[in-house]
Structures are given as structure tokens and as C-alpha cells.
């Protein structure tokens, strides 16, 4: 028995030695992952500590559930952030998916193929514009004095709106920005699915007397359903993470807009930038984010594995 074990060990070591160059090639990636992804897991203990730079991560004193107590005592802020995070996720997923699918179908139906190609190139362009730049553009449209929209309102005899003071407009504004930036790009994926649809299916539908809309309803959309459901399911795992650039930058991190724009990520970001090391409730928020995100990814993966095993993460 012992001899067998040592023989196996010897064989393993031999195969590792044989693959030494593969090990060296994997090392840079492995080291990066360990240093910047795995070791920072230990930072989550801060949720139960009072952090001070002087004492460091491991030396800071434990405070039990105090940080969470502060978080929950902070009144509706916590509930509001969670609500915003989840609500924007739902809103963006719905609007983004419907937009991208509609766009893909429209581009696919068009007979002027050359113009469709050119239009598509233009529609993808906003994806490559940074949120810093988008902030400038949004400001040019919404500014109280020189903004284009307010100019139009006042020249029509209306009263200018202080967009950066009124939270109620921002769900709409942020959704429009999200669509502008992302829909053109994600339609590419659906278009590539449509490119693979057998033309005979349309011919068959035509013989059965289907008009264009019926063809879309009964041939095109069913073809897209698997991709739509997989993409939506997979994105569920990231529900706790928002597009920080959109919520932190485009809103210019304006306090007056927090009721409808503050999400968990922008809260953490704000704390890192401004609190100078007092991370108590922030650490609690991060912990909460990680745990919920983890649980959701596991659940989503279970569902995906049932429905379409080839798309499951594990």
C-alpha cells in the first residue's frame, strides 16, 4: 500500500516536472489572481472591525456587529440603496434587452443591407465613449442655463428645470443614457444569432401565409428566446454591482439626487474618495454586497445548469 502511494506521488511529480514550462506560463496569472483577487477576500473582515490605517487590516480591533448596527440605524439610506440597485438592474435589463432585440430584428428585416451596416456602426459608437465624456454631454443637454433641453423649454415659454436638483427625473435620464451607450452594442449579439437562422424557415412560414409580423412573432422571436434568457439569467449574478461610472459620475455625485440615484457601488466609491479611512458602515455594505452576490450567482448557476447545461459556469 505504502509503495503504491509513493509510486503515485512519484508519477505525479514526474508529470509536474514534464509540464514545468506550462506551470511557469500559468504563474503570472496565478500570482495576479492570488494577490489581487483572493487575498483581498480577507478584507471582508473589516465589516466586523473598526479600521485604522495605523493598525492595519489585521491589527484593527474587532467591534462585533457594530458596523451593521450603524448601517441599519442610518435609517432608510440602506433600504434606499438596495432598492435603487435592484430597481435599476430590473429597469436596465428590461429596457436594454427589449431595445437590443427590437434593434436586431429591425436591422435584420431591412432590405437596404449597406445602410443597415453603416447605421449599426454608428449605433455601436457610444459604447466606446467613457462616462467622463458622457457626463459632459449630459451636462450640455441638462444644464440649468445653457443646457439644450432647458433652452428649448424656455424658448417655448416654459420654466427651466433644475435637473441636477430634482431626483425624480433621474430614473428616466439614466435609463436613456444606459440605452444610448449599450443597446447598439448588445444588438450585435442577437443579430449574429439571427444570421444563423435557416432561411427555409421563413419560406415555410410564407407558404403557410404568414405576413412579416407573423414571421417575426413565430419564427424570429422564438429563435432569440434561448439567448435572451441565458443572458438575463447570467447577468442576475451581478445584480449587486452597478455601473459605477453611470451612477457616480454622470450624476456628478450630487447629494440632492441620491434618493433615486445612489446605489451600493456608488456609496462605497464615495466613501473611499471622501471619508479618509472611516470605513465602518462601508465595510458592512461591501460585505452585504459580496454575500448576496455570491448567493445569487450560485442560485442562478443552478437554474442555468438545469435549463441549458452548456452555458453553466460550473
Amino acid at each position: 500500500m505504502k509503495k503504491l502511494q509513493s509510486e503515485k506521488l512519484k508519477k505525479d511529480l514526474k508529470s509536474l516536472w514534464r509540464d514545468r514550462e506550462l506551470i511557469i506560463m500559468s504563474l503570472p496569472a496565478v500570482i495576479l489572481v492570488v494577490m489581487f483577487k483572493i487575498l483581498p477576500w480577507s478584507g471582508l473582515q473589516l465589516a466586523f472591525k473598526k479600521f485604522s490605517y495605523a493598525k492595519g487590516l489585521f491589527g484593527s480591533p474587532w467591534v462585533g456587529l457594530n458596523n451593521f448596527k450603524f448601517l441599519f440605524l442610518s435609517g432608510d439610506v440602506f433600504v434606499r440603496m438596495t432598492r435603487n440597485t435592484v430597481a435599476y438592474f430590473v429597469l436596465f435589463t428590461a429596457a436594454g434587452t427589449i431595445g437590443a432585440v427590437a434593434l436586431a430584428i429591425a436591422l435584420n428585416e431591412m432590405v437596404f443591407k449597406r445602410s443597415a451596416k453603416m447605421m449599426q456602426s454608428v449605433m455601436i459608437m457610444p459604447t466606446f465613449i467613457s462616462y467622463v465624456a458622457i457626463t459632459f454631454i449630459v451636462n450640455a443637454l441638462l444644464d440649468y442655463q445653457v443646457g439644450m433641453i432647458n433652452q428649448a423649454i424656455t424658448s417655448g415659454g416654459g420654466k427651466a428645470i433644475q435637473f441636477y436638483m430634482e431626483a425624480k427625473y433621474w430614473p428616466l435620464i439614466l435609463t436613456i443614457v444606459h440605452i444610448w451607450k449599450n443597446v447598439g452594442y448588445s444588438s450585435v449579439l442577437y443579430l449574429s444569432v439571427l444570421a444563423g437562422v435557416d432561411p427555409e424557415m421563413y419560406d415555410a412560414a410564407a407558404i403557410d401565409g404568414a405576413n412579416t409580423f407573423q414571421k417575426i412573432r413565430y419564427v424570429t422571436i422564438p429563435m432569440l428566446i434561448p439567448m435572451i434568457s441565458i443572458r438575463t439569467l447570467m447577468s442576475l449574478g451581478n445584480i449587486m454591482e452597478s455601473d459605477t461610472g453611470l451612477f457616480y459620475r454622470v450624476t456628478k455625485n450630487t447629494g440632492a439626487l441620491y434618493p433615486t440615484t445612489q446605489v451600493l457601488d456608488s456609496y462605497v466609491m464615495n466613501a473611499i474618495m471622501n471619508t479618509g479611512g472611516n470605513f465602518s458602515t462601508t465595510a458592512a455594505v461591501t460585505f452585504y454586497q459580496s454575500i448576496i452576490g455570491f448567493a445569487l450567482t450560485i442560485i442562478v448557476n443552478l437554474i442555468v445548469r438545469k435549463k441549458s447545461p452548456e452555458h453553466a459556469l460550473f
Binding site: 483572493i38 483581498p40 477576500w41 478584507g43 471582508l44 487590516l57 462605497v268 466613501a271 473611499i272 454586497q289
Partner: peptide, 15 residues
Amino acid sequence: LTTLFSGGMLSSYIF
């Protein structure tokens, strides 16, 4: 594992 579980922005910053 690293895609499943993340230490979050704050831990990365402190590290």
C-alpha cells in the same frame, strides 16, 4: 472562485 466571490472595491483599495 474569484468570479463567484469578490472582496469588493473597499478591500482591494485597502490592499
